[in-house]
Design a protein around this nucleic acid. Structure first.
Lengths: 154, 154
DNA sequence: GCCGAAGTTGACGTTTACGTAAACTGGTGA
DNA sequence: TCACCAGTTTACGTAAACGTCAACTTCGGC
């Protein structure tokens, strides 16, 4: 199937996403997307998009049996990919997206998002410390090995 | 098996080179360990030790059907835990231990270890960069959300 | 002679994010 | 009309490092 276009839906998802609009102009004005459109645009496979649907992250409507993605679907996908890239699990992302769907003027959702983001930042920073520790330990070990080699005349 | 002995000394796990150099340093008194001894000492479960054996990381001999760990087994375990703590997979660790067993005067093994350590350091540093990126993006997103909240009088 | 603790093996479960294969439908160009 | 391609569904496979369970055996104690 080829691409269609029609209808204007509002994007309910605030655009927090920076780096995933591979080419905003490529989809400028477009309202409908096929599975291939989005897969190409975001560098994921069609299988991935179906998987996200199975996990209830995106729910494109159908044109017959084919999936048809709206701009809102596309915005949600962007959100999913951004979330992944900063270490959220798909389940955590789904929970946040669900909140947006409830839509109480977005204040609640924004507050929750703000909290989740902060928590995730903390998690990442802890992991970073752990990595620093590991790197330091490895460098110490490497130095020791180097010395052993030297003392063996290598 | 009830008890072999009660170990009280705590060798620090990440003492890489001491563990690597299995027979050199004097680790107090004991020569034989039960599965519980080592499990307690290193804070792992007995299941874990059996699992490591299944993966051919350690090969304790038997007293009847019970496992009996030598100091060499204990040193290998230490090495395994150190390797894990700096991000090596069990398979990578096994490969290094195998090399160590071949023992050609240790120069080859030391060289390989040196290389592996450096590679792992590089891997960790790359991951750390990715985490920094994620943290930065999240902080940007959080700031955006904060601003949206502010503009809504929250 | 029985109980329970500790040991054993073997097999299946867990988690995450998809990949891959099989089998089928539907539309299109030559 | 045929051959393809693109799309679909269902279901099983993968990797890592164990946890958990079931079903024993063995040992020491009382």
């Amino acid at each position: 199937m080829r691409h269609t276009n029609q209808t204007k839906f509002h994007d309910e998802i605030p655009d927090l996403v920076a780096g995933f609009d591979s080419d905003a102009s490529a989809s400028a004005g477009q309202e409908q997307f096929t599975i291939r459109d989005l897969a190409r645009e975001f560098g994921v496979t069609a299988r991935t998009l179906r998987f996200y649907e199975e996990k209830e992250l995106i729910a494109p409507r159908r044109a017959g049996q084919d999936r048809l993605y709206s701009r809102r679907d596309r915005a949600r996908l962007k959100y999913v990919l951004m979330g992944k890239s900063v270490g959220f699990s798909l389940e955590e992302i789904r929970a946040m997206l669900d909140l947006y769907d409830l839509g109480d003027g977005q204040v609640t959702q924004l507050r929750v998002a703000h909290t989740r983001f902060r928590e995730q930042i903390d998690r990442l920073k802890r992991q970073r410390k752990e990595m620093d520790r590991a790197i330091a330990e490895l460098e110490r070990a490497r130095a020791t090995v180097a010395q052993m080699l030297a003392s063996r005349g290598a």
